[in-house]
Design a protein around this nucleic acid. Structure first.
Length: 355
DNA sequence: ATTAGACGCGCCGGGTTT
DNA sequence: CAGGAAACCCGGCGCGTC
């Protein structure tokens, strides 16, 4: 499957967002830090982006409502999210990794796959970690694997546990050699790509552990989840996965804006005005990026949390904000407004580049 | 020529994960 | 009480072609 000496490393920054905030305010080191929303933990409809390890010990998790975090931990330091700063810090990290003779495939702000030819992947991982720390002051954990699935999962085992207070990660190797031993007894939920929903579905088929999934019947899986996903899940149970690492960034296929409003919206004219403004702003960004819009999606979340999405293909690709806004309003008219609205979103799908 | 069915494809709504 | 962004997959439906 892979040539000998070719390894895949998964680099994952430790508590990335919190670490970046602590880096610029060193007096916060050692304190529970919670980053998210506007930074006001009493304001409704905001969630935790990242909590420092100290805050996690009190049960604060990313995705949790900020007000829930505040109830658990009123004494934590609450900071607003500052995406531009995280973006810049991320670039510092990736640039540092690129100084090595490796291929770096970026996977979001705080993680990437590194493809490398080496006889000593642990040594390489240690060198990468040291270089990142020296250049950026940030620590990371590194998973070593014979494919992306295993490398990504290995990172989880490399992460600092509750026992290691310092928050400094390590490395861990997961390959065909120890896959079964390490993973067999674990719930399928631990696999990368199986969330709460799929885990439930698999449970209904009597598949609870990774070993169960690895030994499952392909036809059964395909019948229930479709030809592609069925095949994919079985492979996942066996720890199989992609071995290609590429440094060619993927062309984005779409761009979107969505917003949960502090107060519910009920006035149709106001809802339309918000969607129109969002569509215009989105189009401006897309045009600045020199892309053309082919399809427009509108997302509405009602107070019941019911969140349908509807869309419309444009007669021809466009860069005209008014055309996009009109399309968005046409799509908006397809919704039935029985309850107030808490979120509105617009997504622009790009036409393939003329190239 | 008409009909039934197979097939591919685009459109669209919905689901799931990270 | 429940953010924002992006990707991928599936299935139903309608349409045109063979």
């Amino acid at each position: 499957m892979t040539e000998p000496g070719w390894w895949i490393l998964h680099v994952d920054m430790d508590q990335f967002i919190a670490a970046v905030e602590i880096r610029r305010r060193p007096e916060l080191r050692g304190l529970p830090v919670v980053v998210g929303g506007s930074g006001d933990p009493q304001q409704a409809r905001q969630v935790v982006a990242t909590a420092s390890y100290e805050a996690r010990e009190y049960g604060v998790r990313s995705g949790m409502p900020l007000r829930t975090a505040y109830r658990k931990l009123p004494d934590a330091v609450y900071l607003p999210s500052d995406p531009a700063t995280y973006e810049a810090a991320s670039a510092e990290v990736m640039d540092t990794l690129r100084t090595f003779p490796v291929i770096v495939e970026v996977w979001g702000w705080d993680e990437c796959f590194v493809g490398a030819r080496t006889d000593d992947p642990e040594r390489l991982a240690a060198d990468l970690r040291a270089a990142v720390l020296a250049a950026t002051g940030l620590t990371c954990s590194i998973g070593i694997g014979d494919n992306k699935t295993r490398a990504k999962l290995a990172t989880g085992f490399a992460k600092p546990g509750p026992s290691q207070r310092a928050g400094d990660g390590g490395t861990y190797r997961l390959t065909a050699a120890n896959w079964a031993e390490v993973m067999d007894h674990r719930p399928v939920r631990d696999l990368w790509g199986i969330g709460a929903r799929m885990s439930q579905n698999l449970e209904e088929l009597g598949l609870r552990t990774v070993a169960d999934l690895a030994a499952a019947d392909l036809e059964t899986l395909q019948q229930r989840f479709g030809p592609r996903m069925g095949t994919w899940y079985l492979a996942l149970g066996r720890g199989l996965g992609d071995t290609e690492v590429t440094d060619v960034p993927r062309e984005p296929v779409s761009r979107s804006h969505e917003m949960t409003y502090p107060e519910d919206l009920s006035d149709p004219a106001e809802i339309q005005a918000k969607v129109r403004a969002m569509a215009v702003a989105l189009t401006d960004e897309v045009v600045a990026d020199d892309r053309w819009i082919q399809r427009v999606h509108v997302k509405v979340r009602f107070t019941s949390f019911y969140t349908p999405i509807k869309s419309r293909k444009l007669p021809a690709p466009t860069q005209d904000p008014e055309v996009v806004a009109d399309a968005a309003l046409t799509v908006l008219a397809k919704f039935e407004f029985r309850r107030p609205v808490r979120l509105l979103g617009v997504r622009a799908e790009f036409a393939p580049p003329p190239d």
